[in-house]
Design a protein around this nucleic acid. Structure first.
Lengths: 250, 250
DNA sequence: CGCAGAGTTGAACGCGATCAAGTTCCGTGG
DNA sequence: CCACGGAACTTGATCGCGTTCAACTCTGCG
C-alpha cells in the first residue's frame, strides 16, 4: 500500500485545527512549543489502509489529525473483533511504544491524516513536562474506561441494546468533535464493522439495524449510519452517555 | 462492612514482599524512598467486601499487597460483567483518581490487603520522578492490553474457548506472582464469577467447565479451580499466553 | 457488460439461555 | 445432637436468540 507521505509537515501545531475545539483543554505556550517540536511530520493513509499492525515494533507514536479508523484483533482462523474506533484527537500506538510490540492492528475507515511523534521524544516529555505526561496517562485511562463499557456491552447486553449503545457512543464522540458540521451526520461504517464490533454475525447485525431503523432511531444510508434519535438509543441501551468534559490533546 | 483497618502501616516498603519477585523491575534507592513516603498506610478488606465502588470519588489510590479481587460493572437491571481480576502488585483506583469518578466497582474475592497512596502525592510523583510516571502509564497500557484480549475473547471465541482462555490467563498471572508456592494451585473463584466474566449464564458455564474437566485440563475443587494443563488450555483457546517480562510495581 | 462489495431477506439449525429440580456442604440455632 | 437454610454446584428438558446457509437486489466501477 503505497499511500504514505511521511514527514511532510503540512499542519503546524500552532495552527492545529483540533485544539480550538471546546472539548480539548487549553495549552500553555511552552507545552505547545514542546509538542510542536515533538511532532516530526505527518502521514496519510487512505481508507481501508493499515495504520499500524499487530506484532509490529513501531518507532513512532501518532495522533489522529483527521479521519476515522478502528483498532482490532483477529484470531488465527480469521474471526475479527473491533476493540474501539479512533477519531481526530486520539493518540494511537502508545501500547506499542511503551511495551515494545503492538498486539492489535489499526485500520483506516476513511482517509486518515496522522501527526507523527518520535518515540524517543516521549522520555523527554516525561522528564520535562510532567503535565503532559499526566495527560498521556489520562488518555490511557480514558481508553480503558471505554473498553470497560464495551466489555459490559458485549458481555451482558442483548443484540439490540448493543447496537444502540455502539451507535450512540460513536455519535456522541463524533458530535463533540464537531464532525457533523456541514456534511450529513453519518458514521462512516459498513454493517460488517458493526458486526465485528458487537460480536455478532453480519446477518443478525443487519436484522438488528433494521429494527433500529423501524423505530426511527437511525437510518442506514449508503455506507454509513445516520443517527436520528440519540436519546432513544441511549434509553434503549440503558446508558447515560459518556459525559466528557475537557480532555487533553497531544 | 466494618472491615477497615486504615492507616496501620504494617509493611514498610523497604521490606515489601512483592518487590523481590522476578517479575518486577528493580527500583533505585530514591524511587523506593519516594514510594515509601507516598504510601500513607494499609487497608484490609475481607473476602466479599467492597474495595471501591462505582460513582465514588476516592481520594486514594491503591496497590494490592495480597489477596484477589475483581473489577466489574453492572447494568441497571442487575446484569453483571466482570472486567478483569486484580492480584498482588496491581494498582487500582487510577481511573477514579485521574478522571474524578469511578465507573466500575472492585470487590475482594479473598481477604485483601492494600497499600494506600495519597492522591495528591501523584502530582508530586509526576513532577519529581518521570520514571515512575512512565511506569504508571505503562501499568495503564498493560490493563488496556488485557482488556483488548478479553474483548476479543467475549466477542469472538466460543464458550469453551473463552473458558479455556480465562483460566489460562488467571493461572499464568498467579504463577508469575508465585501464588501457588505452598498451597494448592487453585484459583479462588466461584462458577458465578466465571460466568460473569465470560458473559455466559451460570448453567452453561457449569456445563462448559465440566467439559474442560472431562478433558483433564482443569479440576473444579471446592470454591476454586485447579489448572492441570495450561498448555492444553492455551492450545484450546488459540492463545499464546501473556508472555510478560519485567514490569513495574508501585 | 460483468463483477465485486454492500445490504437484504427467508429458512433451518444450534449454541447457550431459561426453567426446574436435584445434591452436597457448611454454618447456625434449637 | 439434629433441623434448617443458604450458597455453590449439577443435570435434564425446553426455549429462543443469534448463526449459518442460500439466495437475491442494488450500486459503483473497470
Amino acid at each position: 500500500m503505497a499511500n504514505e507521505d511521511k514527514f511532510s509537515k503540512a499542519t503546524p501545531c500552532e495552527a492545529c485545527p483540533l485544539r480550538p475545539l471546546e472539548i480539548f483543554r487549553p495549552f500553555q505556550h511552552d507545552e505547545l512549543a514542546f509538542v510542536a517540536n515533538f511532532k516530526i511530520g505527518e502521514r496519510s493513509v487512505d481508507g481501508g489502509g493499515t495504520i499500524l499492525s499487530e506484532s509490529q515494533r513501531s518507532e513512532h507514536l501518532f495522533t489522529v489529525l483527521s479521519g476515522w479508523g478502528f483498532r482490532y484483533k483477529v484470531l488465527k482462523d480469521g474471526r475479527r473483533q473491533i476493540l474501539n474506533y479512533v477519531m481526530p484527537g486520539d493518540m494511537v500506538g502508545l501500547q506499542g511504544t511503551l511495551m515494545g510490540e503492538m498486539q492489535h492492528s489499526i485500520e483506516a475507515l476513511s482517509p486518515v491524516t496522522l501527526c507523527v511523534f518520535k518515540r524517543s521524544g516521549l522520555e523527554q516529555l516525561y522528564r520535562q513536562h510532567p503535565d503532559l505526561a499526566y495527560d498521556i496517562t489520562w488518555i490511557a485511562a480514558r481508553e480503558e474506561r471505554i473498553l470497560d463499557e464495551n466489555l459490559l456491552s458485549i458481555g451482558r447486553r442483548s443484540a439490540l441494546e448493543r447496537a444502540a449503545y455502539l451507535l450512540a457512543f460513536l455519535y456522541q464522540r463524533a458530535e463533540t468533535l464537531q464532525l457533523f458540521r456541514g456534511g450529513r451526520n453519518a458514521l462512516p461504517l459498513t454493517q460488517q464493522h458493526v458486526a465485528d464490533t458487537l460480536g455478532l454475525s453480519i446477518v443478525h447485525t443487519n436484522k438488528t439495524l433494521r429494527k433500529l431503523s423501524g423505530r426511527d432511531l437511525i437510518r442506514w444510508a449508503d455506507r454509513g449510519c445516520e443517527v436520528r434519535d440519540v436519546r432513544g438509543l441511549l434509553r434503549l441501551a440503558g446508558w447515560q452517555g459518556l459525559g466528557e468534559s475537557k480532555r487533553p490533546l497531544i
